[in-house]
Amino acid sequence: MRILFGIVSIVIIIHSSVGQSGLTDEMKETENQLYASNKQINQFFRRFNGEEDDDGNRYYPSDKKYRDISVRKRYLPALFDTETSQLSSDLIRDFLKDVMDKRDPKFLNFHEDDWLAEVNADFLFKGKKISGLLYMRLQQQGQGYEWIIEDVAFDQFQNFFDKDTSETKQFMHPLSHELDFMTLRKALQGNKHTEQFTAKAYKPDFLTIFLYELNQGNLQFKTVKNVKFHFFSIDGWYFSLNNYNRPGYNTGWLISNLVRIQNASLEKQLKDYIYNRN
């Protein structure tokens, strides 16, 4: 009986030890994944620049490892979405080669670079739920910085303006001045698209409309649905950041799109596309 009790005790101890070991390994794996994830935008900047060690501790300009090429070579390839994006491996290689060029390395500057946040948010507009995009940038304020709304995009606002540019569009006769512009009555009364009578170059200012509707109480903010970031910080390149919340090491804020910019015209096209400009 004593022998049997001893055997059972040994089995329990071994099982408990194996269980604790498995749990420890699982916790270690979770911890490693947590360290690997780019949890914050600031952390993405530090890892891109080589300003952080493997444990998330910051390097400062006085540290020997600050912006060291070996640190960047370890971090930079892990800053891309490798699970869902269709990024070309050749394109990524060219980008990394340019960014880590020994003679002219490229770094990101949080406060000075050409980058912006695209915030997808829900609103109530005259009692109806709608979604819109807010384009936000950092600007200097006193001794610090602040986020400001630079532009907006709302389908509802876009639908307010349906400017006809054809030869048969509505117009005011060129001799209207001889009638003391009495033609304005016909042009403006009961017309839901008076933009027909503006200059060819006229473009509606949706940010002003957004602020006006907010101030009048017709538009109420509800919640942010998601955020992405657009970077034109590296000469000759554009990339965007998305946040991926999933198991594994390829998580957090990662580069989801990468485009080589060959000229100023392409950069303008990209910016117009991002801002939903026609």
Rank of each mutant, 00 (worst) to 15 (best):
Q269P: 06
N57H: 13
N250P: 00
K106T: 05
S16F: 05
T183K: 11
V99N: 03
D98M: 02
S17W: 04
R277H: 02
S240A: 11
W115E: 03
M1P: 06
K73T: 09
F206A: 07
A36C: 07
F197I: 10
G190F: 06
L4S: 15
E112M: 01
V152Y: 05
A36H: 04
F171T: 14
I130A: 01
A264F: 12
F210G: 01
Y59I: 12
K203C: 04
E83P: 07
I69V: 15
T168W: 13
K203F: 03
N215R: 02
Y202F: 08
T183Q: 15
N159E: 03
K268G: 08
G127P: 14
R260E: 15
Q262K: 13
N159M: 04
Q143G: 04
H193Y: 14
D162M: 12
F45E: 09
P77H: 07
E118V: 04
Q43N: 08
K192F: 09
D104R: 10
V11R: 07
Y60P: 10
M136V: 00
A121R: 15
K64P: 05
Y275Q: 02
Q143S: 07
F229R: 01
T223M: 06
S85G: 02
S166D: 06
S89E: 08
K228Y: 02
F181W: 10
L241K: 11
V18R: 06
L207N: 09
N242D: 05
D55T: 11
K97I: 03
A264G: 12
I69H: 06
F95M: 10
Y273W: 02
R185G: 09
K192D: 14
V119W: 00
D272S: 03
L116H: 07
E83H: 12
V227K: 01
N218V: 03
M172W: 09
T198D: 05
D122W: 09
E112Q: 04
L214H: 13
H193K: 10
D90Q: 11
G19E: 03
F154T: 03
K129G: 03
S88T: 07
G142C: 11
W115R: 02
Y145G: 09
F123W: 00
I41W: 11
S265D: 13
R47F: 01
R246P: 09
Q140H: 10
F48H: 03
F154I: 04
S233M: 10
D205F: 04
L266E: 11
E150S: 13
V11G: 09
L258Y: 04
S85D: 02
L76I: 01
